Deep mutational scan, measured.
Amino acid sequence: MDSLVVLVLCLSCLLLLSLWRQSSGRGKLPPGPTPLPVIGNILQIGIKDISKSLTNLSKVYGPVFTLYFGLKPIVVLHGYEAVKEALIDLGEEFSGRGIFPLAERANRGFGIVFSNGKKWKEIRRFSLMTLRNFGMGKRSIEDRVQEEARCLVEELRKTKASPCDPTFILGCAPCNVICSIIFHKRFDYKDQQFLNLMEKLNENIKILSSPWIQICNNFSPIIDYFPGTHNKLLKNVAFMKSYILEKVKEHQESMDMNNPQDFIDCFLMKMEKEKHNQPSEFTIESLENTAVDLFGAGTETTSTTLRYALLLLLKHPEVTAKVQEEIERVIGRNRSPCMQDRSHMPYTDAVVHEVQRYIDLLPTSLPHAVTCDIKFRNYLIPKGTTILISLTSVLHDNKEFPNPEMFDPHHFLDEGGNFKKSKYFMPFSAGKRICVGEALAGMELFLFLTSILQNFNLKSLVDPKNLDTTPVVNGFASVPPFYQLCFIPV
Rank of each mutant, 00 (worst) to 15 (best):
S3I: 13
C13N: 03
R21L: 13
P35A: 08
P35C: 13
P37N: 04
I42W: 11
L43E: 04
I45V: 11
D49N: 12
I50D: 02
S51I: 05
L54A: 04
L54I: 13
N56A: 15
V60F: 05
F65A: 01
L67E: 01
V75Y: 01
V76R: 00
L77R: 00
H78E: 05
H78L: 08
E81R: 12
V83Y: 07
V83P: 01
I88R: 06
L90E: 10
E93H: 12
F94D: 04
P101L: 05
E104A: 14
F110M: 15
I112F: 12
G117S: 09
K118T: 10
K121E: 15
L131S: 03
M136E: 10
K138G: 10
R144Q: 07
V145R: 00
E148R: 00
C151S: 09
E154G: 07
L156N: 00
K158E: 08
T159K: 07
K160D: 06
A161G: 15
F168C: 07
N176Q: 02
I178G: 01
I181L: 14
K185R: 09
K185G: 06
Y189P: 06
Y189T: 03
D191C: 07
Q192G: 09
L195F: 06
N202Q: 11
K206V: 09
K206W: 10
Q214F: 09
N218R: 08
K232T: 13
V237A: 07
V237P: 02
S242T: 12
L245Q: 13
K247N: 07
K247C: 09
K249P: 02
K249D: 08
H251E: 02
D256G: 11
M257C: 09
Q261F: 04
I264S: 05
M269T: 15
H276D: 10
Q278K: 15
E281V: 14
S286H: 14
E288A: 12
G298H: 07
E300A: 14
E300V: 12
E300C: 13
T301P: 11
T305G: 03
Y308V: 02
L310S: 00
L310T: 04
L314R: 00
L314A: 09
K315S: 04
K315V: 03
H316V: 03
V323S: 04
E326F: 00
G332D: 05
G332T: 05
N334V: 12
N334I: 12
S336G: 12
D341Y: 07
R342K: 07
E354P: 00
Q356W: 15
Q356E: 04
L361V: 11
T371R: 07
P382R: 07
T392V: 05
D397S: 11
P404K: 02
D408W: 05
L413R: 01
D414G: 06
G417R: 05
S422I: 05
K423T: 13
Y424F: 08
F425Y: 08
E438R: 05
L440E: 01
E444K: 04
E444F: 02
L445E: 02
L449V: 12
N455R: 06
S460V: 02
D463N: 11
L467S: 02
D468C: 09
T470S: 12
V472R: 15
V472I: 15
V473Q: 15
G475N: 12
G475T: 10
F476L: 13
L485G: 02
F487L: 02
F487K: 01
I488D: 11
